[in-house]
Design a protein around this nucleic acid. Structure first.
Lengths: 216, 216
DNA sequence: ACAAAAGTGTTAGAATTACACCCATGG
DNA sequence: CCATGGGTGTAATTCTAACACTTTTGT
């Protein structure tokens, strides 16, 4: 039977204390003119992940990003005309690199416009996954530039989890984890200069496997 | 481009202190004669989940089972002839109902024969997911009959996690969770009769959302 | 009476949580 | 000199993990 397989991408970033996703405007029917998340039809000789990376690069020019398969959506009525099964991925783009993305596609996840297909549901599902992932992995670091302050890191956690965290407990925990390297550099944007840190763990490390959990 | 979409099923059960998966023998090429996990090509008007349920019923005659999407595998070389993207699901079949499955397809996950395609990898991935799921959900209960003893429940946990648990701590935790209803029935298979319990939580409840975690 | 599995509490250590003040800088 | 965000420690509580003996039954 004739089925089209696509890969759709929920690309997250955090900016100005808000979790944002990258949307693009549909130029074809159906849903012409509506916003949607970026997607591609997979090619003959590429894997699902390769297709996701290809689309990621096309939309953001970004390489080396955190990218993870989210879920596959295959309801026969999700596309009004054809039968399209989509394998959704989500990606985390550091704030500094998100600024370089051309166009103006970043939308606050709390203020999404009507979207094409079931893309709203896909985004909702991705947010849920991201929240969970934050607690037992180092995904949060993938949303920050290479060098960042502890306040910036905490702000990412607070934004995604949607709640305030205690500054001292947060820092204590980060110290314990031993995945941050303090640099001899300070950021002088606010009043008192803030120390910069680098993430030094492995990119996709599961902290749970080491018996470590973020207790937030 | 022409792609076939299938749904493959990793069906788990626990029997005689071993985690088992249901395998079937391939009757068609390629890999004719090898064992594989059950799979179906999706039909025009069914969703992915419906296809998974259809195959589940076909193989086990079981309804009302725990079924969850696992991951989608789409490497262009995973099928030697065609391009096949498979959406893998995994299911948990209670021990008593697993005995009623015709044929002799249950294999210990520690002693898997060579499998067709990338099915070995799919099973390995499903095991990993199941282990994780056990810790923050009530998935473990789905592998037991409606009524069960605490020792049987503990055995399921020990089997899947691959390690011994402390009996008193295990029971203390189960008490705290308040998801077990003690019955006025006892099982008289061993020496001292063991009290039977029923699971009374919601089927797919995420205990984490209630701030509850299995600490094993 | 003995073997086998059922059942039951306590305690030490670890992790989590709540909480308040001083510091360095720019304006 | 003051407003702003950076930075730091302790104590109470909760959770986890280690540990051994008694009970009940069938043989």
């Amino acid at each position: 039977m004739r089925i089209q397989v696509t890969v759709d991408l929920v690309i997250f970033t955090v900016h100005e204390s808000a979790l944002k996703v990258l949307l693009v405007k549909r130029s074809a029917r159906p849903f012409k003119g509506r916003m949607e998340i970026p997607g591609v039809v997979i090619r003959k000789n590429e894997s699902l992940e390769q297709a996701a990376l290809r689309e990621m690069t096309e939309e953001t020019s970004a390489h080396q990003v955190y990218l993870e398969q989210l879920y596959s959506f295959g309801d026969p009525r999700r596309h009004p005309c054809n039968r399209v099964v989509t394998v959704a991925y989500y990606a985390l783009l550091p704030a500094d690199r998100a600024q370089q993305v051309s166009g103006n596609g970043w939308r606050n996840v709390d203020q999404l416009p009507p979207l094409a297909f079931d893309h709203r549901r896909i985004i909702d599902y991705a947010i849920e996954r991201l929240r969970n992932k934050l607690e037992y992995s180092t995904a949060g670091f993938q949303l920050l530039p290479k060098k960042f302050t502890l306040s910036e890191l905490q702000a990412v956690y607070e934004t995604i989890l949607g709640k305030k965290l205690d500054k001292r407990n947060f820092r204590k925990k980060m110290n314990l984890l031993r995945i941050l390297k303090p640099l001899k550099e300070w950021r002088r944007t606010g009043r008192k200069p803030a120390r910069l840190y680098m993430f030094v763990g492995k990119k996709f490390e599961k902290l749970k496997d080491k018996g470590i959990l973020f207790p937030f």
